[in-house]
Amino acid sequence: MKLDGIAAFIAIAEAGSISEAARRLRLSKSVVSDRLAQLEHRLGARLVHRSTRRLSLTEDGAAFLEMASQSLRGLDAAVATLAERRGTLAGPLRLSAPVTLTALHIGPALYPFLRRHPQIELSLELDDRVVDAQAEGFDGVIRHGPMRDSPLTAWRLARSRRVLVASADYLERHGTPRDLAELDGHRGIFYTHRGLADWQFVAASGRVQVRAKVGLQVNNGMVMRDAAAAGLGIAMLPLFIAGPDIRAGTLRVIEVGAEPEEEFIYVAHPEGRNPTAKLRALAECLRDAFGDPPYWEAGCLVDPAN
């Protein structure tokens, strides 16, 4: 039984289609399809229901998937362990990370790491959506947000302070809000994946949610930053995005007597799956590169001790 056939089946099961599995494996669709057919022939069982919409596993396929996944992970871990015994980090590593954070900060930190460890085969998928690390086969998921209870084990990489920002032009036209009550009447620029309930603050009276008027909803932080700089409204942005514009004076920080909910940049991995030395080393690399406090907070007119 060939390992590439088992790997193709696992990729198909995780991706939900042969086309997506082929993309992830960087193979042609016909090759992946042939490997699945050969595996089914070798096993004497149909593993996948084929339809024009989405593939689904047969009962045999679901049973085989669990055992095959464990076996393949075990083999990968064994190969990685031997490499680590020789002082080498090697083998596949599949991560999911946010688009903007990676473009601005994760990428520049990762490139030297990958040069130092050329035997690591990193697959980095950029996506801001919530992903199921276990079901989608990720070794780790890097995200930005509050660290709440989760079936994943999370390692903190850096704190991530968010601030309210707007352009001088917008504040001159609409006034600068001084408290949460005044903020309520302003135009907001919201991140689509978080929704209109994103403006949550920790005040002396407890947790407060503010629902401003919708000026723009968009699923990209850099577009939010540019929209705020263009005077379209107030945005709540992490300093890893807004920092350069705050230092340049393009955006102004708005103080309303309350702090947004505490958030962090973290890497999470499926609970129960032993994290590899590769993932631990990568996390340590990012933690060192970001610093404590993180370098993007410097000069943003915000007291990082708060």
Results as ranks from 00 to 15, higher is better:
166 A>M: 00
172 E>S: 12
181 A>S: 13
165 V>Q: 03
136 E>G: 08
127 D>L: 10
176 T>N: 03
126 L>C: 04
151 P>E: 01
155 W>S: 13
171 L>A: 03
141 V>I: 09
167 S>P: 00
144 H>V: 14
173 R>F: 01
137 G>V: 15
127 D>A: 08
147 M>E: 13
136 E>Y: 13
157 L>K: 00
129 R>A: 12
162 R>D: 14
123 S>G: 05
128 D>H: 02
171 L>C: 01
156 R>S: 12
166 A>I: 01
124 L>K: 09
180 L>V: 05
150 S>W: 01
151 P>L: 04
179 D>A: 02
145 G>L: 08
143 R>N: 15
123 S>T: 15
122 L>A: 09
166 A>Y: 00
161 R>N: 04
151 P>I: 04
186 H>G: 00
145 G>Q: 10
178 R>L: 04
126 L>M: 13
149 D>N: 09
186 H>P: 00
169 D>M: 03
145 G>Y: 07
150 S>C: 02
170 Y>N: 05
186 H>A: 09
183 L>H: 13
125 E>V: 14
157 L>M: 02
184 D>F: 06
133 A>Y: 02
168 A>R: 15
137 G>T: 14
149 D>K: 13
182 E>A: 15
123 S>L: 14
159 R>L: 03
148 R>T: 15
151 P>C: 06
174 H>D: 06
144 H>E: 15
137 G>K: 15
147 M>W: 03
183 L>F: 07
169 D>F: 01
129 R>C: 03
177 P>H: 07
184 D>S: 12
188 G>E: 09
172 E>G: 14
162 R>N: 14
158 A>W: 01
171 L>T: 09
166 A>R: 00
178 R>Q: 07
157 L>C: 00
143 R>W: 13
155 W>K: 09
134 Q>S: 14
169 D>N: 06
136 E>I: 08
130 V>E: 12
162 R>W: 11
188 G>D: 10
123 S>A: 13
149 D>Y: 06
174 H>Y: 10
165 V>W: 04
172 E>W: 05
161 R>W: 01
170 Y>G: 02
141 V>H: 11
185 G>V: 07
141 V>W: 13
131 V>K: 13
149 D>I: 04
124 L>C: 04
142 I>G: 07
181 A>F: 07
